[in-house]
Design a protein around this nucleic acid. Structure first.
Length: 298
DNA sequence: TCGAATGTTGCGAA
DNA sequence: TTTCGCAACATTCG
C-alpha cells in the first residue's frame, strides 16, 4: 500500500489511536517481518515504551518512542490499523502491538500483510535513526526539494528518469503510481535521460511531483489494489489518476490513447503524444528491449 | 498455467 | 564507477 501519500494517510489516521499510548506487548506471527536481531529482542525493547509521536520518513512510518524508534515499512500489501482484539484468523497477520487501555479504537495495533514483504525496524537512539534517515534523498514535500535542486541533481546522473525518481536515495517516497502521474503532467518520457531533461521541464516536474502528492494526501491516497487505512477505508485519489492504469483510455490533455510500457521492470503508463520518446541511442535500445504490454488498441 | 501487482535489495553484466 | 536488468522475497487475482 505504500507510496508517500498512502503512508502519510496511515500516519495521520493513527495519530489519535497511538500518540501517548504505552506498548504493553509485541506479538510476532511472521518472524522474518522483524528486521535485525529478532522478535524476542525487539519485544524486550518495546514493552513499556510510550509512543511520543508518529512521523514519516520516505515510505517508512516512524513511531518515536520515549526511548528508541520503531519503524514500519508496509511494502506492497502491508496494512496497519487498530482493533479491539487480536483476530481469531491470523493468516495474514505479521505482528501486533498490544497497547495500554483504555483506547479509542481498541487495545491492539495490527500489522497485516498478505505478501509478507513488510518489515519492522528498530533504532535505539536519535543518532542511529538519523544515520538511517540520511540514506534517503530529500522529502518531496519538504523545503529542501526545490526546482533548482531537482534541475541541478538531474544533471548529476545519466540515468533513465523513471528509475531515478523511483530511487529512494535520490528522492524519498515516490513509487510507481506517482512517478507515472508526475512524468505525464510534466510531459517527460520515462526513458528520457535525466541529464538531458531541460531546466524548464525539470521545473515543471518539480511542480508536478508536489501537486500530485499534495492532492493525493488530501484525498487519503490511492487504492489501486490493496491499500486500506483504519482497517477498511479506501483512498480517494484512485479516480483522480490521470494515466496510471488507464491504458487504452484517452489522454485527458490531448486525447491520444494512453499506452502501457515496461520501464525499469515496472508497468509504465504514458501518453505517446504528450511524452515523446528520447532520441539518444541508449534509451532507444532500452525502449525496444522493454516488452510492451497492456490493452491499448487502435 | 502464466503474468502482474502501489516495494526493496543484492547480484552480475555492460 | 555508474547504470541497468533480473531474480528473489510471498501471495493473490484474473
Amino acid at each position: 500500500m505504500p507510496e508517500l501519500p498512502e503512508v502519510e494517510t496511515v500516519r495521520r489516521s493513527l495519530i489519535p489511536y497511538l500518540e501517548g499510548r504505552v506498548i504493553r506487548d509485541l506479538s510476532v506471527f511472521w518472524k522474518r517481518a522483524v528486521h535485525g536481531s529478532g522478535a524476542a529482542a525487539l519485544r524486550e525493547r518495546l514493552v513499556g515504551r510510550r509512543i511520543v509521536a508518529l512521523e514519516r520518513r520516505a515510505k517508512y512510518l516512524t513511531l518515536r518512542l520515549d526511548r528508541g524508534f520503531l519503524l514500519i515499512h508496509l511494502r506492497m500489501t502491508g496494512k496497519l490499523y487498530p482493533a479491539p482484539e487480536l483476530p481469531a484468523v491470523r493468516k495474514h497477520l505479521s505482528a501486533a502491538l498490544a497497547l495500554d487501555a483504555p483506547a479509542p479504537g481498541g487495545a491492539w495495533l495490527l500489522f497485516e500483510d498478505q505478501r509478507r514483504f513488510g518489515r519492522l525496524f528498530y533504532f535505539a537512539d536519535e543518532q542511529a535513526y538519523s544515520q538511517f534517515s540520511e540514506r534517503f534523498g530529500p522529502e518531496p514535500l519538504g523545503a529542501e526539494f526545490t526546482a533548482d535542486w531537482l534541475t541541478h541533481e538531474l544533471k548529476q546522473h545519466r540515468r533513465q528518469i523513471k528509475p531515478l525518481l523511483l530511487d529512494q536515495e535520490f528522492i524519498a517516497g515516490l513509487g510507481n503510481i506517482y512517478v507515472d502521474e508526475s512524468l505525464w503532467m510534466a510531459g517527460i518520457h520515462p526513458l528520457a535521460r535525466s541529464d538531458r531533461v531541460r531546466p524548464d521541464r525539470a521545473a515543471r516536474l518539480h511542480h508536478s511531483i508536489r501537486e500530485v502528492l499534495a492532492a493525493s494526501i488530501k484525498a487519503n491516497g490511492t487504492t489501486f489494489l490493496n491499500f486500506k487505512f483504519l482497517g477498511g477505508k479506501s483512498g480517494g485519489y484512485t479516480d483522480q489518476l490521470l494515466v496510471f492504469s488507464r491504458q487504452g483510455e484517452a489522454c485527458p490533455r490531448c486525447g491520444a490513447l494512453i499506452q502501457k510500457l515496461r520501464v525499469a521492470q515496472r508497468g509504465t503508463h504514458i501518453c505517446p503524444r504528450c511524452q515523446r520518446p528520447p532520441q539518444n541511442p541508449a534509451a532507444r535500445k532500452s525502449a525496444t528491449q522493454g516488452r510492451a504490454s497492456g490493452k491499448a488498441g487502435a
